[in-house]
Amino acid sequence: MLNEQEINKIIKIVKLEAQIILENGGETYRVEDTVMRICRSFGLIDVEPVVIPTGMFITISHDNLATHTIIKRVRRRTVNLSKIDAANLISRQLTTGRISLDEAIIQLEQIIGDKSKPKILTATASALSAGFFTLLFNGSLFDFFIAALCGAVIQLFSFLLQGEDMSNFIISLTGGIFTAVIAITATQIFNMGNMDLIISGAIMPLLPGLAMTNAIRDTIQGDLVSGVARGTEAIIVAIAIAVGVGVVLKTLILMGGGLN
């Protein structure tokens, strides 16, 4: 039989788990699933989690004890697959009884507090990813280096905006602008390389692949609200990138330069 203290610990764990998974790019049904699993493993059968991309409502009832409800607003959403994986591991260990409630709380708080995302590594990854996409589109070695430059610049700029509310949209828009400006400038100055391949390679890491996939997965799973929300996010981000690139191309045309 669970006492009030244990219930409170479980509620705290559930809240932290849900927050980590949702903030770092997990699907809403995964959050609900994790919450149910943890609660069931402690004999709490009467659990109702409702999770949407911007927040969650979880009610846990138990015989003889008060009903508990958690409402949590999630504002900051990024993609950090390592954190989802770590939270997943903790819930697995907890439900199979390999770690105690206290240990789980400590570990989950560590994951939330972990802000270290090595900047140089991330910028390099962004650069090389953009570069290899350009090569995949049949670009030359010159295109590879220019696309890598675009990828690095986008990532360095996104560090400046980290934590801002509108960052996702602004990064996509400015990412498109930076990419197009760098690609056009470089191909004009050196008079070589393929501007089209550089731009399309460099915008690949920005494209909302995760949001799009999650949108369809959520919709088919029956989470219609999440599906629509994620779908809108994906469309808006894709449009932001395209508009960023488009503005620069249009300026080039108006200034008298042609597109090949």
């Binding site: 993609v79 994986d85 290899f132 995760l210």
Partner: peptide
């Protein structure tokens, strides 16, 4: 290679 670095960008395990 492109996916490998893309995975690093998203901090995949």
């Amino acid at each position: 290679m492109a996916s490998l670095f893309f995975a690093l960008l998203f901090n995949a395990p």
